[in-house]
Design a protein around this nucleic acid. Sequence first.
DNA 1: CGTGCTTTTGAAAATCATCAAGTATAGTGG
DNA 2: CCACTATACTTGATGATTTTCAAAAGCACG
Lengths: 238, 238
Amino acid sequence: MAAFSVRARAVDAAAAIEPCGHCGARTRSVCNAIEAPDLARLAALAHGLTIPAGRQFIEEGDAAEHFFNVTAGTAKLFKMLPDGRRQITGFAGVGDFLGLAVSATYAFGAEAIEPMRICRFSRSRLKTLLADFPALERRLLEVAANELVMAQEQMLLLGRKTARERLASFLIARQSHGDAVRLPMTRSDIADYLGLTIETVSRTLTWLRGQRLIEIPAAAEIVIRDRPALERLAAGLR
Amino acid sequence: MAAFSVRARAVDAAAAIEPCGHCGARTRSVCNAIEAPDLARLAALAHGLTIPAGRQFIEEGDAAEHFFNVTAGTAKLFKMLPDGRRQITGFAGVGDFLGLAVSATYAFGAEAIEPMRICRFSRSRLKTLLADFPALERRLLEVAANELVMAQEQMLLLGRKTARERLASFLIARQSHGDAVRLPMTRSDIADYLGLTIETVSRTLTWLRGQRLIEIPAAAEIVIRDRPALERLAAGLR
DNA sequence: CGTGCTTTTGAAAATCATCAAGTATAGTGG
DNA sequence: CCACTATACTTGATGATTTTCAAAAGCACG
């Protein structure tokens, strides 16, 4: 628990102050709610951090002292049970905002699955900023509402879809451009995200390949061969 | 889909204008963000509706024209798959706010499981109100963030907990005052909320009774006998 | 080119779902 | 008020998907 702030401090040295104006993630993030003239104030509050792959930078239950904005890389967000069972509640990529929780403690842990750059804000200081920029608050509400919609979709997946439907849904959701789907997370992460075991994930991917719906040139890369069929499967159409 | 507005209109006749100042749900709802002097403006935008048990008043996919605030009764919120599989994503009780979705259409359906009173707001007109009352916006953000935390907890339940752990979690979460837990929803609703079947719900409740953790004086009423043990079970401690 | 980790594949086991009655409960009309 | 019917709930037997246990095959890195 207490490890969090220590760990964060450890990478502060490597943190270059990254002016928001040049931030590659700005157009995709909540920060786009703020106009250029005011970016200086935003930058003054922000703290750029570099996080190596595998480092957990949010610990569930720790005091929620910061908000984060991902500017590079990917993180997994998760909740754990005492015996080690884990549920990954989402993956946060470039532009995503972390730490919305209103409570005093983080409701989930977060760990980098790739090297990351994140922009860290103090909770208390952001409160001031929110008061000054209602547009930012509106944007956060939008973001939260969107997350809520995705969470409901995931509940449908976890509660009612079969393993095949889950994998089909997952692959479709992660397809961004072209037919290639990059999977920076391990099979274990995918399993914990979809409520399955790594063996079932592996077997189901093999089955999808057998059906000619996908190709698997490498473990971390899937090529979608028949998107319409995958979509039907994901939607639960037999 | 289109049935929604028609249905809503059908009960308009029975809708008495309910002054917000007297609203029993106000202290528990988002409306508590608005001070007494401004309540008149809120009331002018609100539309009180009475909904009989069993009526679906939000249809997934319909144009999202309204926000709702529950002032009496309970609704179930759900998503469906084409073949009839259903996932209940939550229950909305007194004070709860519905329809946060930013998209143009509702991401879930809603049906009364008890007779309800709801307060309906036009989306477009509420936007004006939000601009005037930043406090209301802040409150909505709080509500959304809370919902998000609950959604993540539910993902952990659906993805990683056993049937016994799911029922234990459910009963604990619904216990409000005293040892009695009121269950206005059917076993089918509970099953669709917990990602199980009605048979498993029934069997698991019987098992919990056999372990002396609960009593079942009536199908719709559970008495908690051993809360600590239920909590251990819900937390996944073997 | 080992060494360790991830992934895949196989066989057995378990939890939960499905199919099928039987029992309680509530609402209805005589 | 009571029988009747419909619906909800419970219980039992069987079955299937997924998990667990186990081991082999790939792959990345020093």
